[in-house]
Design a protein around this nucleic acid. Structure first.
Length: 833
RNA sequence: GGGCAAGUGGUGGAAUGGUAUACACGAAGGACUUAAAAUCCUUUGACCGUAAGGUCUUGAGGGUUCGAUUCCCUCCUUGCCCACCA
């Protein structure tokens, strides 16, 4: 009887119910047992689950189930990253409240997740939009405020005109909003920030320890944090008390600085030009720059625009008077917003100088005595070399000069050694409704006052008008806005912005440790047991945003003394995308395959197996309906083997004949290959292929026809195949395990807790081995020889072989190489020449 | 412009210094069947050859090695990330 669609439905539903009813995957702290925390990036509930979710969670589930069989106490929770803009859009479009829409989506997702047979501890399920969760967002925010890590400041912020809200730097991709792709503009606003830069140093340094993260993700975070070593140098403005501080990574070129450039937004641009002939020109230029879109301004190939400020600065190392320019290629956000320009040794300065007829001086040449004529250069010389025209530093290699000159300037008080970071503080205010209210109150008398902890949560009102226009919806709810000042009790105004939703997801992995604790953010004892997450799985698109924020929060929470782990995720696996016809599956492209349809036809087990077999987890996966069918056929073969060839209660030992030995060899080889594929980085595709090889051997094994010892051997092979596949096809595995009449080890029991099979190296050692003979690097013959024989045995044997003799064509032997149990390589005189 | 990853049969992919193409899909032929589906068996990198056998083949070119998909150098292509970051 094949495993029909009806059987599949019956079996999958049966076991899903069984797991649920018997709380098979409920996790509890057990100090006597080694823990393993498997976590996938929780979904944003926007509807039913899609193939991307299926892939992500199937990978996690196989890992969780494999670790259970390996004897670990596994925590594998699931929840929903439930705040966010799509819920508001749905509200505007369909007139349902964001809460209603979100909870409906969560219900749909839960159904889909259960249908896949994932081994979640459903008792820990959480949704970030529940007040019982976001209460702790607010608590954390207050803690940060208390420690000075949450602060309010007025500054130019990224503003998405389409979403009508502010954005963090990390949310601006190529000058566009990460969500709606519209262009982001700069706007001066007073907003809440989190001081992630407080942890710059450890966020960078600890990346080194995350050896089990993809190198790519680490590199991306490193670039994002962006530590640069250099010097701040003070340029006095000629005829004024002002000083321009510039940051440079090339203090070795200071003697070649021929002008200084300020960003258009630099506070000095206005002051320096005032009263000079350049005043009007500077004002026009600054205004134009303000209206040029950021993405255009910072694109690398844009023409550099600038204007003379009318002022001069003094180069502190040689007293030279050099012009101060305003240039749009200098960014206010980085360094000090001012640079010293060394056109001969920086390509950007070179272009700007040529364009504006500014002076150039060469201060580095490839070797001593060499001369460069700036007039003859067609681009800046940015390589290393030795200094010239640099006073006492002439002749010094420039790398050495970087330090020497910095130290010298620092001693003279004209500069200082400096480190600059690219990382900015995290802007978290959002002018949105569907998020966590920021628990702050503005009092006329007392200023900015935090909400008292016992007043948490500050609940989202359910009657806010959501139009997508006109700023924070919460500001339009008088009963929300109006509050008593926690300090003086007078009437005050509540903060009406909500938190960026990345706040919610920056610590949810801690909440899972005691998901329903009402008295505290999480139970430190349980967190001490479960944390850190041993294996985290999710998309590469979170390489910077979510993963960096989570690392920051973990460090902060560690500093509160609530957790000892200082990194949240020990290992990270970034799964590849699911493609169809070479394109990412997406609703907008109209090429999505609905997991439900696949499950209805082939079952969740087949879908799981296909998705793991078709490509290694990190690679892109091309959807292939034919491959899906192939995996279904394989499950069928396993099913048939149990149904037709497995005989219960067969036992007995007997001498092994060649066929038995072969089957036994394949059984151990399969265990070894699957185990190694799992341990060596979760290569599920090769793990599955190893079981296929075993099943090929089972199918070839002759009918034991009543010989119980042979039947027992066959049984063993089939049992092994079922166990090895149990993490991949859990429903079929439970059913087959039951069909085989196997004792379930403990409790209500599940094949998920059967011990993982062990292999015996001895069973993998054969008496005879095949070796090949190469002549001058090419395989010319094959021999079967006893294991471990050496050259004395092999040499006469190989040299007597007709094909070997022929290919040696009478040449003298120069080398005779033996690789034990593998090959013999003969090198002849002809080749050696 | 900088960084990282990848490039292997008709297709997905395997092999991390030792027989390249495991495993699967697809295709072709055969068995069973009145027939089809399902299942089972055989073949399946390319070229030359009736065959035995030979030659070539892991993006291109070079190098190291008895031996390279694997290590090194140069280049090409694709993907991703960063980018007037001083």
């Amino acid at each position: 009887m094949p495993y029909t669609a009806n059987d599949i439905r019956r079996v999958e539903e049966k076991w899903q119910e069984y797991w649920q009813k018997n709380r098979i995957f409920s996790a509890a702290v057990n100090q006597g047992k080694k823990k393993y925390y498997v976590l996938e990036m929780f979904p944003y509930p926007s509807g039913k689950i899609h193939m991307g979710h299926v892939r992500n969670y199937t990978i996690a589930d196989v890992i969780a189930r494999y670790k259970m069989m390996r004897g670990f106490n596994v925590l594998h929770p699931m929840g929903y990253d439930a705040f966010g803009q799509p819920a508001e859009n749905a509200a505007i479009k369909r007139g349902v409240s964001p809460a209603e829409w979100t909870y409906k989506c969560i219900d749909d997702m839960r159904v889909g997740l259960r249908r896949m047979g994932f081994s979640y501890d459903w008792e820990r399920e959480l949704a970030t939009c529940d007040a019982s969760y976001y209460k702790w967002n607010q608590w954390l925010f207050l803690k940060m405020f208390e420690k000075g890590l949450a602060y309010k400041k007025a500054s130019a912020v990224n503003w998405c005109p389409s979403c009508e809200t502010t954005l963090a730097n990390e949310e601006v991709i190529n000058g566009a909003c990460w969500r709606c792709k519209n262009e982001v503009v700069q706007k001066e606003l007073e907003q809440w920030y989190l001081k992630i830069t407080h942890y710059s140093e450890s966020l960078l340094a600890d990346l080194q320890r995350l050896e089990n993260w993809p190198a790519r993700v680490r590199a991306m975070q490193e670039n994002w944090i962006g530590k640069s070593y250099g010097a701040d140098i003070f340029f006095k403005v000629s005829g004024s008390d002002e000083t321009i501080t510039v940051f440079t990574t090339r203090p070795d070129t200071i003697f070649g600085a021929t002008y200084v450039v300020l960003a258009p937004e630099h506070p000095l641009t206005d002051r320096l030009s005032r009263g000079t002939a350049q005043e009007a020109a500077v004002r026009t230029f600054v205004e134009k720059a303000a209206h040029t879109s950021k993405s255009l301004r910072v694109s690398g190939d844009a023409r550099k625009e600038g204007v003379f400020s009318g002022a001069f600065a003094i180069n502190p190392v040689n007293g030279e008077k050099i012009p101060v320019w305003i240039g749009d290629y200098v960014l206010m956000e980085y360094g000090t917003g001012a640079i010293m320009a060394v056109p001969t040794h920086d390509q950007r300065d070179f272009e700007f100088a040529r364009q504006n007829g500014l002076a150039m001086r060469v201060v580095i040449t490839p070797s001593v005595g060499e001369k460069f004529d700036p007039e003859q250069m067609d681009r800046a010389f940015e390589d290393g070399g030795v200094l010239c025209q640099s006073a006492q530093f002439d002749g010094m290699p420039n790398e050495q000069a970087k330090k020497a000159i910095s130290d010298w300037m620092q001693a003279k008080g004209i500069g200082r050694v400096s480190v600059r970071w690219r990382l900015r503080d995290w802007l978290i205010s959002r002018q949105r409704y569907w998020g966590t209210p920021i628990p702050m109150i503005y009092c006329q008398t007392c200023g900015v006052v935090p909400v008292a902890q016992d007043q948490l949560p500050v609940r989202l009102p359910d009657n806010a008008p959501i139009t997508g226009e006109g700023g924070s919806p919460l500001a339009k709810v008088p009963e929300f806005v109006q509050a008593a000042c926690p300090k003086c009790g007078r009437s005050a105004r509540r903060e009406t912005d909500t938190m960026a939703t990345f706040f919610d997801s920056s610590w949810y992995f801690l909440r899972y440790c005691s998901a329903h604790d009402d008295g505290q953010i999480f139970d430190p004892v349980q967190a001490a047991y479960w944390m850190p997450v041993d294996q985290y799985i999710g998309g590469i698109e979170h390489a910077i945003l979510h993963l960096l924020y989570s690392r920051f929060f973990t460090k902060f929470i560690r500093d509160l003394g609530l957790v000892t782990a200082d990194e949240p995720f020990e290992r990270l696996l970034t799964q590849g995308m699911v493609l169809k016809d070479g394109e990412v599956m997406s609703k907008s492209k109209g090429n999505v395959v609905d997991p439900d349809e696949v499950i209805a036809k082939f079952g969740a087990d087949t879908l799981r197996m296909f998705i793991l077999f078709a490509a290694p987890p990190e690679d892109q996966l091309e959807w292939n309906p034919a491959g899906l069918e192939g995996n279904w056929r394989f499950i069928n073969r396993l099913w048939n083997a149990v149904e037709q060839r497995y005989v219960r209660e067969a036992s007995g030992e007997s001498a092994l004949d060649a066929g038995d030995k072969k089957l036994e060899f394949e059984r151990h080889a399969a265990i070894k290959r699957v185990t190694e594929s799992m341990e060596g980085g979760f290569k599920f595709n090769t793990a599955i292929s190893a079981v296929m090889v075993l099943m090929n051997a089972v199918d070839k094994y002759p009918d034991p026809s009543g010989v119980t010892a042979k039947q027992a051997r066959l049984n063993k092979a089939i049992e092994t195949a079922v166990l090895l596949l149990a993490p991949f096809i859990p429903h079929a595995a439970e059913e087959l395990w039951e069909m085989m009449g196997q004792r379930i080890s403990f409790g209500a029991g599940s094949v998920a807790f059967e011990p993982w099979p062990v292999f015996d190296e001895a069973a993998l050692v054969t008496d005879k081995v095949k070796i090949v003979a190469q002549v001058n690097g090419k395989v010319r013959a094959e021999f079967e020889v006893p294991r471990d024989v050496d050259e004395t045995f092999l040499r006469p044997l190989v040299l007597a072989d007709e094909a070997v003799i022929r290919h040696m064509s009478g040449q003298e032997i120069r080398k005779f190489i033996v690789v034990k149990n593998k090959l013999v390589s003969i090198v002849t005189a002809e080749k050696a020449q």
